[in-house]
Write a protein that binds this DNA or RNA. Sequence first.
DNA 1: AGTGATAATGATAATCATTTTCATTATAAT
DNA 2: ATTATAATGAAAATGATTATCATTATCACT
Lengths: 153, 153
Amino acid sequence: MTSQIHPSKYEAWLDSLQNGGYRLTAPRKAIVAIIVNSSRALDAVEIFDLGRVEHPRLGLVTVYRTLEKLDELGLVQRVHQPDGCNMYLRAPEGHEHLLLCKSCGQMEYFSGDDLSELIEQISQRSGYQVLEHWLQLFGLCGSCQVVTAELDV
Amino acid sequence: MTSQIHPSKYEAWLDSLQNGGYRLTAPRKAIVAIIVNSSRALDAVEIFDLGRVEHPRLGLVTVYRTLEKLDELGLVQRVHQPDGCNMYLRAPEGHEHLLLCKSCGQMEYFSGDDLSELIEQISQRSGYQVLEHWLQLFGLCGSCQVVTAELDV
DNA sequence: AGTGATAATGATAATCATTTTCATTATAAT
DNA sequence: ATTATAATGAAAATGATTATCATTATCACT
Ligand SMILES: [Mn+2]
Ligand SMILES: [Mn+2]
Ligand SMILES: [Zn+2]
Ligand SMILES: [Zn+2]
């Protein structure tokens, strides 16, 4: 019962670890399962707490070390938010950006942004050679809009 | 000789502090002068070191406390970068986003992005109500492009 | 200009997240 | 099965930020 929603992604991450020269261990499997199945970013302690359910001997240090490796392998990314930048989420697949709910922390990726025109314009004006961009949208997810609407009757 | 490049902005920030109910002190003046005249983001220790030139008795704690207040007043913003998020820069004026040089750390704001169409599209698809967006462009400033070009002759 | 209430400062200590150390255990190649 | 060694986790160390508190400086009000 390690992975329910994304068994294939779970397997893929384990393969990725193994191909990266890392061993497959119980703590790593627990951590991967948690992140793969989460639609919110999690910090080290949250992963630690969730991980201990599956693997009670898990150490917090191992969470930090595993996050470091998953980051190296490009499987997770650190998420930047106004109130902190120490939470991790699965990395985007291809050209995707984050859309996050300010209320419940739910996150999803979107794609289809085309900033080429803007970037060309800015390059011209500034003399910069633009190499990459960060884009993040903040708002309220469907269910949080409903809650908000109910509150101000 | 507190402020050379942006004397008016320097004055404006001091006014803003005072209007916010804060006292005008030598350490605060030194810190404001440094940030107002910087075209790079600076961390607490950099501000501390620069500040001691003007005001040798300055304490690092005061730098942290002043940054906190300048942030409250909306005069500075924390800058998020791949290698850390504890540097501060003057806040944008109006709707501006950051353009930063990956090589020398030089930063400038740009405006003129119009994401309304994209945001509308994403709202439709996702059911999110989009409230704000973060956009940051990374690249090489004019002088750093030159340096790079010289290197690979 | 002088006084006084109190906001601000800075030395020091405390806190808290993240890293390092290191003896022990588990993995995977043989 | 054996074995080399990567990985783990308890404990200690580190480093950035925050809290304490006695002292000093600001500024509103004479
Ligand atoms: Mn994009
Ligand atoms: Mn914008
Ligand atoms: Zn950040
Ligand atoms: Zn540059």
